[in-house]
């Protein structure tokens, strides 16, 4: 993946995550039941966003680090 695409992908991810964590998309997980892995659906979804953000940032950082290494070389 090129750095440009990585920027776009991260931007899109942040936008969707922000919408989901604030209002419009989160209405669907507002109801607590049925519990998922013992957690209310809203709390479970927020945890999923935390994990997904970690993975997205990790992937983004890898792409940019490789690009920086190539530039340095």
């Amino acid at each position: 993946m090129t750095p440009r695409r990585a920027h776009l992908a991260l931007g899109l991810f942040v936008l969707v995550a922000m919408l989901s964590l604030t209002w419009p998309l989160s209405v669907w997980f507002a109801e607590p039941l049925p519990l998922v892995l013992g957690l209310p659906r809203g709390l479970f979804t927020i945890c999923c966003w935390a994990a997904a953000t970690f993975v997205a940032l990790l992937a983004y950082d890898r792409v940019l680090s490789k690009d920086r290494e190539q530039e340095d070389a």
Partner: peptide, 16 residues
């Protein structure tokens, strides 16, 4: 109750 979930939510994106 669920209002407390926002404490978790803002920290996820806040440091990006």
């Amino acid at each position: 109750g669920a209002a407390a979930f926002h404490i978790l939510a803002f920290g996820i994106l806040g440091f990006i």
